[in-house]
């Protein structure tokens, strides 16, 4: 759980999110059991107000630059403002199934 904990801590510190879910989706992929390579992040934060989608992702990617350069191979991001989150009824989109592709990168 080390990578997951690091991701949670960095995002909690960097975004002060109202909602933060870091989901290890590595088990959906063609990697060894217990891997921490594929994550989905759902974050709801005031930090995203007035930011476009690309800017929101860049902000999260920046906070997690070390992890992305290292163990994390796939990072699915869903970043909402509190208002958007309420409008969605607190729902986020599921990740697609793995199609068996290659490892890192």
């Amino acid at each position: 759980m080390q990578v997951q904990t690091t991701i949670e801590q960095k995002l909690a510190a960097g975004l002060q999110p109202a909602v933060l879910q870091v989901i290890n989706e590595s088990g959906m992929h063609n990697v060894p059991a217990g891997s921490e390579s594929h994550f989905k992040v759902v974050a709801v934060s005031d930090a995203f107000v007035d930011l476009g989608l690309v800017q929101r992702h860049r902000q999260i990617n920046g906070l997690l630059a070390d992890e992305l350069a290292g163990p994390v191979h796939a990072l699915s991001l869903q970043a909402f403002t509190p208002e958007e989150w309420v409008a969605r009824g607190g729902q986020f989109d599921a990740s697609p199934d793995c199609l068996g592709g290659s490892s890192a990168g």
């Binding site: 989608l53 690309v54 992702h57 990617n61 992305l68 350069a69 990072l75 699915s76 869903q78 990168g105």
Partner: peptide, 25 residues
């Protein structure tokens, strides 16, 4: 594009985003 993941979509020569952003759009 200073973007760490693939896929990446470009439309009209401009970076649009990855698959999460495509889904939102």
């Amino acid at each position: 594009s200073s973007w760490p993941t693939i896929p990446q979509l470009y439309v009209g020569g401009e970076f649009v985003g990855g698959s999460d952003i495509m889904m939102s759009l």
